[in-house]
Design a protein around this nucleic acid. Structure first.
Lengths: 239, 239
DNA sequence: TTCGACCTCGCTATTTCTGGGGAGTTAATA
DNA sequence: TATTAACTCCCCAGAAATAGCGAGGTCGAA
């Protein structure tokens, strides 16, 4: 046992912190506290930029980037589809490419066990907090059961920090859509054609077009598809 | 003080629960534990269906629905744009309609203080866990500071349950898109025209069209906009 | 090895969408 | 009260998307 440092203390510290290094710092302290091999915080901001902090070996991080492993990493894929913390064992490792990736990760010193907590924001932000270790299944299950709650909380705190540091948030904020614009975007997003939307909303197709256009301008979109995509990722409409 | 029931116990109970009533049940116990007037869990599933559980007076819930207050409720609006727990005081109550809404809510027995925790899922699911009380600002601040962590955890547990009960998840699962289809959908989602996408991917526009078509079929979409919207809300592409 | 899934390219005709205009009413806000 | 924002309607020409059909090569998995 280590730990004159408790989770509480680290979180309190993190809350006050005002530099990016503080995230890295907190990760190191928490890793020590939890006695795991790796602890990583990964964040995708609303502009699609990625940031990673944590204890993965530099060589692995480089390799990962070079090979664009984010495309095949089942942790990313799995967490993107999921809502809740997930044990790596429950992910889909069946394909050949994925197993090769897994083998390579092991070589680079990534543990055989992992637990990742996905959290997502209103503008497409996506964060992943991962703990990673080498041990057998039983020990790992005990570890995750015992610490799940703390890990969820830690993930939240990291996110709070990351959001503070996100540079391009204000510029991405767009004017809100008017009710009619929201109606139009929503119906388009569920597959209605212009004619159908106009009929559904009981307005002329000409009028509808005005809404689509103004929504497009508000969203800075270059066409209808783009506008709907933006409205969706900014949480202005829900489908 | 009440509480031979602790948060831990309620959460453990909730974890085992297998009926919707269990959510309501847990809310009542937690309200007692935290000694607040209202506690509400509100959930929007991936099909846009809404569910609410909690202790708001029935008259208020009815009134809220009848008036379609969800459209002006600043708690909804604010949490939709936010990432993190938010105190109601920090929301935008400036517009006239909103202040009228607020006054009415007070009349119906909704406390003057509130704290809401938004959480969102990969398919547009959105959940809100709210505690609500009548007291002065200082007391409320102390309450939220003291209990924030527990409240975040509780929100997570409610979500876990809610997701289990979500009916229309499996059918919405679609075949995965091929790499080229993902490329195409992604570029379309960021506003490229067909010609631009084809050029970016260095393929003919004819070929591109095949990808878009096959993606459309896989996604069960009736047009490109629909396909991109579905790909987005299913987390198959990221923008 | 065979099957399926993926990637690539081609054609034609029809329907739909986009990008410019303009104009009048109502409702809320400053 | 003046102004702003939202809602509604109209025209037109050119650009883009859709719905059919076809073909051939590669690569991984059963």
């Amino acid at each position: 046992m280590v730990a004159n440092t408790t989770v509480e203390e680290v979180l309190a510290e993190l809350e006050q912190a005002d530099t990016l290094e503080s995230i890295q710092d907190a990760i190191l302290k928490l890793r020590e506290y939890f006695q795991v091999e790796n602890m990583v915080y990964h964040w995708v901001d609303s502009a699609g930029e990625q940031y990673g902090y944590g204890t993965y070996p530099l060589e692995w991080a480089t390799r990962y980037q070079e090979q664009n492993y984010i495309r095949i990493d089942p942790v990313i894929a799995g967490c993107y589809k999921r809502f809740h913390p997930v044990d790596w064992k429950k992910l889909d490792w069946s394909s050949k490419a994925v197993r090769a990736f897994q083998a390579e990760a092991l070589e680079y010193g990534i543990g055989n066990q992992g637990y990742s907590i996905p959290i997502r924001g209103p503008n497409g932000q996506f964060a992943l907090f991962t703990v990673n270790h080498t041990c057998d299944d039983a020990d790992w299950e005990k570890f995750t059961e015992d610490n799940r709650r703390e890990l969820i909380l830690i993930a939240h705190y990291f996110n709070q920090k990351a959001l503070e540091f996100e540079p391009n948030r204000a510029p991405e904020q767009s004017q809100p859509l008017s009710p009619r614009e929201i109606d139009a975007m929503t119906l388009l997003a569920i597959g209605y054609s212009r004619a159908q939307v106009a009929e559904t909303l009981s307005i002329s197709e000409h009028t509808l077009r005005v809404y689509i256009e103004s929504a497009r301008f508000k969203l800075g979109a270059s066409n209808t598809t783009h506008a709907v995509a933006r409205a969706l990722s900014r949480g202005l409409i829900v489908v």
